[in-house]
């Protein structure tokens, strides 16, 4: 980077503030989860793992976490084929009404979450499927679908169409071209997209809040409900589950496709 001293002072000041703001909640939740006392105090009341022992025994927390995993799994399984096909279609073909279709497929982002959530709540309610977990997974899939499509189009634009023509010219029928040439080429996008879909569904709060009832609360909703009553260290310990999941996702993303992929200009 070229530039003067004042430039790096200004840049670094702003970046440091951003870094502290970004990391503070994570660091504090981690710290609070190891506290020895009954309430969260500063400086902490000694170190212990007692809150982890406590949450490993709490079946409501464990069940809520398992339900959340289930929701995220449904979301990802639906999103992978749907988003991959749409992404490839948008990136490769000259589609009529392309602009309109693009705007339409961006609806999940342009409609506010509360609107999407309430709309889905009304139609799932009419269909009589509220109170089950898979509709929550579908809902998470719909509201985050553009992420999946984006990820795939970003890697599909790098695919040379001549490769597919060459494969077809060598006698490969359409499906074989798709599975041997097109799909491997967009694989980084599919991996990025599905990781994003999984982790976003795992954390999805508002749509979950609207679609679940007391019998099937997901973990973010459970934490939200508990925050409203009282703040105890066991909540911090259970929040660490999310921090761990996030760390795993970041690690996988970096290993499988490289985090730098998000810096690439389109």
């Amino acid at each position: 980077m070229s530039g003067s001293r004042s430039k790096s002072v200004v840049l670094w000041t702003l970046v440091t503030i951003a870094l502290v703001t970004l990391s503070a909640p994570t660091v504090v939740v981690l710290g609070a989860s190891f506290t020895g006392g009954n309430i969260i105090t500063f400086p902490p009341d000694g170190l212990s793992l007692r809150w982890y022992a406590r949450i490993s025994q709490a079946s409501d927390l464990r069940n809520a976490f398992l339900r959340t995993l289930q929701v995220a799994t449904v979301c990802t399984i639906v999103a992978i084929p749907v988003g991959t096909l749409a992404g490839i279609a948008l990136a490769k073909y000259a589609v009529r009404f392309e602009k309109t279709i693009q705007i339409y497929l961006l609806l999940p982002f342009t409609i506010p979450l509360i609107g999407s959530g309430i709309g889905l709540m009304l139609i799932f309610g009419n269909a009589g499927i509220l109170g089950q977990l898979w509709p929550v997974g579908i809902a998470c899939c719909v509201i985050n679908l553009p992420f999946m499509i984006w990820a795939v189009t970003a890697s599909a634009t790098g695919l040379d169409p001549d490769l597919e023509l060459a494969a077809a010219n060598c006698g490969a029928p359409p499906l074989q071209v798709f599975f041997s040439v097109t799909l491997p080429a967009v694989m980084p996008g599919v991996i990025t997209g599905s990781l994003l879909m999984f982790i976003l569904a795992l954390n999805e709060f508002l749509v979950s809040l609207l679609l679940v009832d007391a019998r099937i609360v997901t973990l973010p909703v459970l934490i939200y409900n508990s925050i409203r009553s009282i703040i105890t260290p066991d909540l911090a310990a259970i929040s660490v589950v999310f921090i761990a999941c996030s760390a795993v996702a970041v690690f996988l993303l970096d290993r499988l496709v490289g985090l730098d992929i998000f810096l690439k200009s389109k």
């Binding site: 870094l19 970004l22 990391s23 503070a24 909640p25 994570t26 504090v28 939740v29 609070a32 969260i40 982790i199 795992l202 954390n203 999805e204 709060f205 973010p220 934490i223 939200y224 925050i227 703040i231 909540l235 911090a236 929040s239 999310f242 921090i243 999941c245 996030s246 760390a247 996702a249 970041v250 993303l253 970096d254 985090l259």
Partner: peptide
Amino acid sequence: IALFLPFFIGQVVRAYGWLI
């Protein structure tokens, strides 16, 4: 990493951190 870690942690957990 400092960017993605909080990005992948839900709003509820982050708001809980601020409460602490």
